[in-house]
Each structure stands twice: as structure tokens, then as C-alpha cells.
Design a protein around this nucleic acid. Structure first.
Length: 271
DNA sequence: CGCCAGGCCTGCACGC
DNA sequence: TGCGTGCAGGCCTGGC
């Protein structure tokens, strides 16, 4: 489900309600996530005071006094605050019970998500240390993209979705951003000018900001940690619109497979 | 039944 | 030899 906007929406919901709370108990109902949840994680995280909730790419970082809980929502994960008396359902795999009777529960039908614990610098964790810049910071800019694509033959869409180049952009937002930048998803990344990369950087930022503002995209099951749905799917200009007319010129939106993912573009607007 | 779905790691083959 | 790179497969469940 979640790309950067959805994770950021989740983070904003978690921060005020987790900060300065103590983890009373950790419950692992099903350790079989993307990576097996470590057997000692409940012992390490229990009793910890939570200081802050941050985000790195699509990873949520719950910063505690003695370490950091790192969570990834995979394709189908979502987090929800519930009263501890609410019974767990089939795909509820993990929960943090807090010292105020509240509980944060992870639901993830496909189990591509993960829950990790590190007692050292979370940014040095093997899953995080090689990640590219955050797209909403100045470290992500046209020069960076230009430099990193000189020797690459890959298509620009696949480069945008490569978390070593830039984090947080998944299939939906890659499609949408390329439409805004008027760049064909199949265009070789090495054959894009610096000027066009300037446009693309702005398009990525605009797309992500608008999505965050709309509460993210709720296609099937994404909801924030209070169960509220996002609206951004109503603003899609190409994603999921194969065969429908382009908003800008009326040409039919085309769809094709690129690296096993669906790509959508307007053959007239995007070159 | 087959295909599709918001992610991303791993292993392999290739070319420099 | 050792890389960076590109590509396919795999992990899962659910919905159409």
C-alpha cells in the first residue's frame, strides 16, 4: 500500500500519541513477516520510553531511550490505535501496548512488512544505510539525479523507484510525477537533460506534497492510525486510468508492464 | 482458474 | 578479480 505520503501520514498520527509514552508490553502474534521478528524483540522493547517517531523513506522509526523500533508496512500493512480490549483479527501480527491503556496494532495481510529493533544508530542499520536522499529535502535535486544516471541504461521510471537513488517513490507516485514532468516512463535515464531533471524534481515534490495534503491514497485498505481514509486516489491523472482520456489533452492513457509493474502515461504529453 | 495489487531483497548473468 | 548494473523470481493474501 504505502509509499512516502502514506507513511508520512501514519508518522504524523503516531508521533503525538506515542511520544513520552512507555511501551508496557509487546505482542508478536505472527513473527513470519518479510523478515522473522526477532525472538528477543519483545524483551528489548518492553519498558522503553518512546521519545519520537521519525521516518526514513518508507521506514517508520520509533525512537526509544535504549534503541529504535523500525517498522516497514510492505504492500499491505497499516497501523491502528485501538483499545487493548479489541480482539485481534486474522492479519493482526504485532502490537505495542502502551502505559495508558492504548495499543498500536499492525495489520498486514500479505506480510511483506517488517518489524526490527536496533540498539545503535538506526540510520546505520543494514536496511537503511544505503538509502538515497529524501525527496522532500534539498539533498534530492537535479544535479544528484543527473550525476547518478550518466552511466545507467535503465528507464527513468525504474530509476525513480530505486531507493538507492531516492527514497519513498513507489509505483503510483512514479507514474504521477512523470506525467507532471511530461517525461515518458520508458525514457532512458541517461538521455534526460539537467533542465528536464529540474522539472522532474519539482514534479516529484509537488506530487508527494499534494498526496500528503490529501491524507495519502486509499486504494483498498490504507487508512491512517485512526482509521481515516485518504483522498489522493481521486486526483490520479494517469495511475489506474489506462484507456481513459488524458486530463490535459484527451488522448487515451496507455498502460504497459515495466519491470513487472504497471506503467501509465499519456503518449502525447509525455516524451 | 488466472491475473492483478501500494515493496523490495536476493541471486544470477553480463560487461567493463 | 571485482565492481555496477539489469532482470527475474520470490515472498504472501485477497479480490475480481
Amino acid at each position: 500500500m504505502p509509499e512516502l505520503p502514506e507513511i508520512e501520514i501514519t508518522r504524523r498520527g503516531l508521533e503525538p500519541r506515542l511520544s513520552r509514552r512507555r511501551i508496557a508490553k509487546v505482542v508478536v502474534r505472527n513473527a513470519g513477516l518479510r523478515w522473522q521478528v526477532a525472538a528477543n524483540l519483545p524483551r528489548l522493547a518492553s519498558g522503553q520510553m518512546i521519545h519520537n517517531v521519525s521516518r526514513r523513506g518508507k521506514y517508520l522509526l520509533i525512537g526509544c531511550g535504549g534503541g529504535t523500533l523500525i517498522m516497514h508496512l510492505g504492500m499491505s500493512g497499516s497501523l491502528r490505535f485501538l483499545n487493548q480490549s479489541v480482539p485481534a483479527q486474522k492479519h493482526d501480527h504485532f502490537e505495542l501496548q502502551l502505559d495508558n491503556g492504548e495499543m498500536l496494532r499492525l495489520r498486514d495481510p500479505r506480510r511483506f512488512g517488517s518489524v526490527l529493533w536496533t540498539s545503535s544508530d538506526p540510520l546505520a542499520h543494514p536496511r537503511l544505510r544505503d538509502l538515497g536522499p529524501e525527496p522532500l529535502t534539498r539533498a534530492f535535486n537535479a544535479n544528484w539525479l543527473y550525476r547518478h544516471t550518466r552511466s545507467r541504461t535503465a528507464a527513468i521510471k525504474q530509476v525513480l523507484m530505486d531507493s538507492h537513488v531516492v527514497v519513498g517513490i513507489g509505483n503510483i507516485y512514479a507514474n504521477e510525477a512523470l506525467f507532471h514532468a511530461r517525461i515518458h516512463p520508458k525514457r532512458s535515464a541517461s538521455r534526460i537533460s539537467l533542465a528536464r531533471y529540474e522539472k522532474l524534481v519539482e514534479a516529484v515534490r509537488k506530487t508527494l506534497r499534494l498526496a500528503i495534503k490529501a491524507g495519502g491514497s486509499s486504494l483498498r485498505d490504507f487508512a491512517d492510525c485512526d482509521g481515516n481514509l485518504g483522498d489522493f486516489q481521486l486526483q490520479y491523472l494517469v495511475y489506474g486510468r489506462g484507456g481513459k482520456p488524458c486530463d490535459a489533452c484527451g488522448t487515451r492513457i496507455r498502460q504497459f508492464k515495466q519491470g513487472q509493474r504497471s506503467s501509465f502515461y499519456c503518449p502525447r504529453c509525455q516524451t
